[in-house]
């Protein structure tokens, strides 16, 4: 299992499609920085192929006033959880 990390909103960049295209069926995606916008209920459909494997970084949600506005399917983790996700993954791939 690999951890992919995305820092762009689906509203500003199509790089999320490239991330998804290189993901295996077990791989996870963590949204950070501007990427956390993708966790909103109106945008999360772009990640529907990843049901149960989509995460968002709490600190970046809070900083943007988006905490509590995430879709229920998104698992919110803090930076400690970010490290934990990297521990569990064999390696990480970053998309920006």
């Amino acid at each position: 299992m690999l951890l992919h990390i995305l820092n762009r909103s689906p509203l500003s960049s199509l790089v999320y499609r490239q991330a998804i295209a290189t993901m295996g069926t077990e791989d996870r995606l963590l949204l950070i920085e501007d990427g956390v916008q993708g966790a909103l209920p109106t945008l999360v459909r772009h990640f529907e192929a990843l049901e149960g494997r989509l995460f968002a970084l709490r600190e970046d949600l809070v900083a943007r006033g988006l905490a509590g506005k995430c879709d229920a399917s998104v698992q919110v983790v803090d930076v400690d959880g970010f490290v934990e996700l990297t521990e569990e993954a064999e390696r990480t791939v970053s998309w920006y």
Binding site: T22, G24, T92
Partner: peptide, 16 residues
């Protein structure tokens, strides 16, 4: 598309 999805898995390090 299926070959794309295995590339990061079959290398020890991935840089983008």
């Amino acid at each position: 598309s299926s070959a794309m999805a295995v590339q990061p898995k079959v290398h020890r390090l991935v840089l983008t």
